[in-house]
Computed example of a mutant assay.
Amino acid sequence: MLPLHFESVHANGVNLYHYLPGEQPALTRHWPGLFQDWPEGPTPFTEYAVNNNNMEEVAIYVGLTWRLTEGLARYAIPTYYRDDAERHLEQEPVLVDWEYEVDAEELKVASRNKGFVPGRSTHGFRPGLASWCPGNAERAGLFHLATPRDLVRMLHAVLLDASSEITVFAVEPGPDRHAALVSALRGPNRPSLSDVITRTDVFVDLTIGSDIDCFDSIMVASHADLRSRIDTLAADYGHRITAYENRAAGLPNTGAFLHAMPALSGITLDGS
């Protein structure tokens, strides 16, 4: 079986593809330098959100998410850490009422996917206060992702808890489709995934587990049949992972590690 294996099902009007590795990560051999001190300057974390807990798999997740959504305009919701994402991205989000939720502690797809839930944010908390402040506290933020580095910056914002989640809506470029997406994520009625995404859209939920009993997953949704495309990418990453594992132990320093990441992730951070 390929290191990145997606199970597929058609449910609730869309095609769903789930990568849920559980206790078996995509990589089994990691760069030893992840467990050593890094010099000042670019590091695995600053460049790819990779550390000695969330390891090289994160670079693969970033690359896979970007390649799956190629040719579309990408907008993303960082679960809960809206204000942190605003600082990291230096971008004011569009406020919406709903965000997607995955339960990182569950290992079964049926119980893991919670669907759309009311948006949440750290915005309502203030030092010295034990309760919410009024205003836009309980709204999610929708950000534009121009390059893979923006996705990494968003990971910097959310990798703070036992588990972290980013939802990417890849839609047809243009203001009309963006406005329709925002409208679908606003209002009192809970949206359905089949209504939020249109025929040409690709939805990707990236969940990363950091603590024990929290697990990574990638969920892809589309009205279109993406089975062949996902299988092709999974096979490509199988080759990339094998090549990387064969050289990981011999990477002499942080610079060499960072130089190896584009070949593993399948992308460059500027999107070229």
Rank of each mutant, 00 (worst) to 15 (best):
H5L: 15
R82S: 01
R87S: 09
F215H: 05
L142C: 01
F35W: 12
G255Y: 05
R199W: 10
G22C: 07
E172K: 15
Q24M: 05
E101C: 07
A170N: 06
Y48I: 03
N53A: 13
D150W: 03
I60V: 13
P252E: 09
D37N: 08
E99I: 01
L34V: 06
M219A: 13
I166F: 01
M1G: 11
E106Y: 03
T207Y: 00
P252N: 09
Y244L: 11
D225K: 07
P42T: 12
S192T: 13
L107Y: 02
A11I: 07
L2D: 10
V220N: 05
E99P: 01
L233Q: 15
V202Q: 02
R177Q: 11
M55K: 12
P252S: 09
S111W: 14
V50K: 04
T69Y: 00
I241E: 08
H18M: 11
P175I: 04
S164C: 10
L68W: 01
R112K: 14
L107Q: 10
F35T: 10
P252K: 05
N189R: 13
P93V: 00
D83I: 10
M219T: 15
N189H: 14
R227L: 10
R67C: 08
H10E: 13
E99A: 07
L185T: 04
E172Q: 10
D216A: 06
P175K: 09
A234K: 07
S164N: 12
R67T: 14
H178R: 15
V171Y: 01
M219V: 12
T69A: 06
G13V: 08
Q91S: 15
L160Y: 04
G209R: 02
L20W: 00
R177D: 11
G128V: 00
L269G: 02
P191I: 13
A137E: 05
L2F: 09
R177V: 11
A11E: 12
E90C: 14
H30V: 09
F143H: 02
T207R: 08
V196Y: 05
I241W: 07
E90R: 14
R227I: 13
R112D: 03
A256K: 09
R29G: 00
L206C: 05
R199S: 12
L206G: 03
V182R: 10
R139S: 00
F45C: 05
R227D: 14
A162R: 08
S228I: 11
C214L: 06
G124F: 02
N15I: 05
Y19G: 04
V96S: 05
P25N: 08
G174V: 08
V202C: 03
G124I: 02
S194E: 15
G135L: 02
G63W: 04
R199N: 15
F215E: 00
H144A: 15
L233D: 06
A140F: 03
H30L: 09
D176T: 15
R82P: 00
S222C: 13
H144F: 10
T167F: 04
V94L: 12
E56A: 07
L233E: 12
T69I: 06
P3K: 03
R87W: 07
H5Q: 11
R227T: 15
A221K: 06
A179I: 00
G119R: 01
T147A: 15
L2H: 14
P262C: 09
G115H: 12
L185M: 01
L107D: 01
T268Q: 11
F257A: 06
